[in-house]
């Protein structure tokens, strides 16, 4: 709690950061808006439909980023010697790292997602039922879980990449980017990688297909969306294996 409060103290800075995070997200939405202003259909979806994909992605990614976003700044933890102090405590490393800074400002992205969702839903023509509500809730829960796993995976990779942190941006922020997009626009290798290795499309585009009852393109059939829990388990297995190996390498090498 003290940490959260200390973020509020620097009020000007906090407000600017919130506004900045919001507008950065908004620009990402403008990209989709502009592309759909040129053509009525983008990757098989209309503007309200594509907005739903964006909204689901924003909420899930924002929540994961708020809690796990610090994982990919592991190199600075290492350089400042903070990792050692974490390792000497009888607690697990990941919980210590994520609670060291919870970034409230990242709620701005969640807010953007909620607003986009609220505006887009009435225009999307969804046949609502309890199952459909469940699909939305599930998409957010498993989406947050999967993005959180990506941050841990990135953190694990950093043990090998102290000066090459940008490598992991390819799948963390690349994953975020992909998750905002309708599946058919993705070139085949990207579509495969960001579904079956890094499951970024599974909790955004696929649930929207279920909501709209649309079939989906090659390699991304609607039915795959029901497998979100399995993909979430896979993402965490991958993340934890890499993370553990990274920690072992770090402590084994003696720092």
């Amino acid at each position: 709690m003290a940490r959260l409060r200390s973020q509020m103290v620097y009020r000007t800075s906090f407000v600017l950061n919130v506004i900045g995070t919001f507008f950065t997200g908004l620009i990402e939405f403008v990209e989709i808006y502009v592309l759909l202003a040129t053509a009525p259909i983008f990757g098989g979806l209309t503007l309200p439909e594509a907005s739903l994909v964006f909204a689901l992605s924003s909420v899930s990614f924002g929540l994961a980023d708020m809690v796990f976003g610090q994982m990919d700044s592991l190199p600075s933890f290492i350089k400042q010697g903070q990792l050692e102090s974490f390792l000497t405590k009888p607690l697990r490393l990941v919980p210590q790292m994520i609670t060291s800074t919870v970034q409230l400002r990242r709620l701005a992205r969640v807010l953007l997602g909620v607003i986009t969702f609220a505006i887009a839903v009435p225009h999307a023509g969804i046949a609502w039922s309890p199952v459909m509500v469940g699909v939305v809730v599930g998409a957010l829960v498993f989406g947050t879980t999967i993005f959180s796993a990506l941050f841990v995976l990135a953190g694990g990779c950093q043990f090998w990449l102290i000066n090459g942190t940008e490598f992991t941006n390819a799948f963390v922020y690349g994953g975020k980017y992909v998750s905002q997009l309708p599946g058919p626009v993705l070139l085949t290798p990207i579509r495969v990688f960001f579904t079956f290795v890094v499951p970024a499309t599974v909790t955004t585009y696929l649930p929207v297909l279920i909501l709209l009852d649309k079939p989906g393109p090659a390699l991304l059939p609607q039915v795959l969306g029901w497998g979100a829990p399995l993909f979430a388990v896979w993402a965490w297995v991958l993340a934890l294996v890499v993370w553990r190996a990274g920690v072992r390498k770090y402590t084994g090498a003696g720092g």
Binding site: I41, G164, T165, F167, N169, P184, L187
Partner: peptide, 26 residues
């Protein structure tokens, strides 16, 4: 860092190429 840049910019390039091609096709 340079190698990381090539890799990451490359992946983003593939994603962005798909996006723009879809827009043109649409």
């Amino acid at each position: 860092a340079l190698a990381a840049g090539v890799f990451t910019n490359g992946i983003f390039g593939l994603i962005r190429a798909g996006v723009l091609l879809a827009a043109v096709a649409g």
